[in-house]
Design a protein around this nucleic acid. Structure first.
Lengths: 215, 215
DNA sequence: CGCAAAGTGGAGTCGGGTTATCCACTTCTC
DNA sequence: GAGAAGTGGATAACCCGACTCCACTTTGCG
């Protein structure tokens, strides 16, 4: 017996439920391959369903996106928790930067799905903000542990993700691993070393950080 | 007396010539501010002219772009020549990376104007390819001089420009200098240092490099 | 000055793409 | 096997950018 927030929305018929899942799977794949700009019509066609079927289940794109974002956010949080539990701060920082970048490289729409979902419901907004704060805290710990150079800030994480994502999208068909090269160069650039200069202050507020992920 | 390539295209009337220059100036500004996707209608409106006037002078966007690209390419080449004549290879490399990034940061449409113009005429194509080769040669010299780490390649220049340009566009309204931070981190990451690892091979052909600039 | 050629403005057409609806028909489920 | 639930996909409604067309204005030569 499933509990739903809405007032007793009766369960879907078996075939409808199957189609709903097919839509979600297809949407996940298409958003990953082509980015968030695929249309509900594209998804319907790719799934072998009629457009009407998709619109009946998800009245518009934002509600489909919201459904996907739930799942993705959960995966992200679980991954972070596990790494944080098992690594030193320095290792966790580097490992999480790389694995977030990898997730983004393999899923063109990832950040936009997650952050657009935050623009709809206050609840989604809260979860997205929380994610930003978890990263900010991790950065703070990495700084205290001396794992990054002076002046490194949470905004650098955002810009790192933006840059690596852009490279991944641009090179996907040419050399699908090219993003790693850039990620490593950047991580090397962020590492402290003898005689490095402190980076200038850069501290964006949550709103600005969110906007960056929506580029 | 002006010499023109075409068979005696008679000179423009004075007012028409004035408008032509106004269109070019306006287009330069709008492409810089908003990127290459501004329409000829936008440009006409911003210049205070009718659409018809713009279309009479430039039958479509590619021909307007070609006219702008000429000028921009010339500036780029002149800048490079001057720096190369006055600096050591290492300084020239760093200086040119930064000044190209700055030019791009101040002109959203810069690379697209230049590289799209290369997709139209064989002559434009040649000039663009030549520009890529000049950079490739500079990278080769920088490697020989030990100014960059092992494995650095011309394709890294392309990816550098892509990344910095993306950051500049994303942060223009928040902190217009944020791109410098990323540029410096990247340049630090490219610099050789004790114990660094060689970057894996990455050598894109001219076509792939051109595609990257068109992202 | 006068007049033909050149240039102008901008409403409006065209093509292409996305969103979303609607309803005759099919499939489930009891 | 009846009636509720679900489906398909043609199509309406909309948005947008590219480009045309022609009545009107301006230029500049004789």
């Amino acid at each position: 017996m499933t509990i739903r927030a809405e007032s007793a929305p009766r369960a879907l018929r078996a075939d409808a439920e199957r189609n709903r899942e097919l839509i979600l799977r297809t949407a996940t794949r298409l958003f990953a391959e082509r980015g968030i700009e695929v249309t509900l019509n594209d998804i319907a066609h790719e799934a072998g369903l009629g457009v009407g079927t998709v619109y009946r289940r998800f009245p518009d794109k934002p509600s489909l996106i919201a459904a996907l974002a739930d799942h993705k956010l959960q995966l992200i949080r679980d991954g972070m928790q596990e790494t944080l539990a098992n690594c030193s701060v320095g290792d966790a920082f580097r490992g999480l930067m790389l694995s977030a970048a990898e997730a983004r490289a393999n899923d063109r729409g990832l950040f936009k799905v997650v952050f657009q979902s935050g623009d709809r419901s206050p609840e989604g907004h809260r979860r997205v903000t929380e994610l930003l704060h978890v990263w900010a805290k991790l950065v703070q710990q990495a700084k205290e542990a001396g794992a990054v150079r002076q002046g490194f800030s949470a905004s650098d994480v955002d810009l790192f993700m933006l840059m690596v994502g852009t490279v991944a999208d641009a090179t996907r068909e040419i050399d699908p691993q090219a993003w790693r090269r850039c990620a490593e160069v950047l991580l090397d650039g962020y590492a402290p070393r003898a005689g490095d200069t402190a980076l200038a202050e850069l501290d964006l507020d949550d709103e600005a950080r969110r906007r960056i992920f929506l580029c």
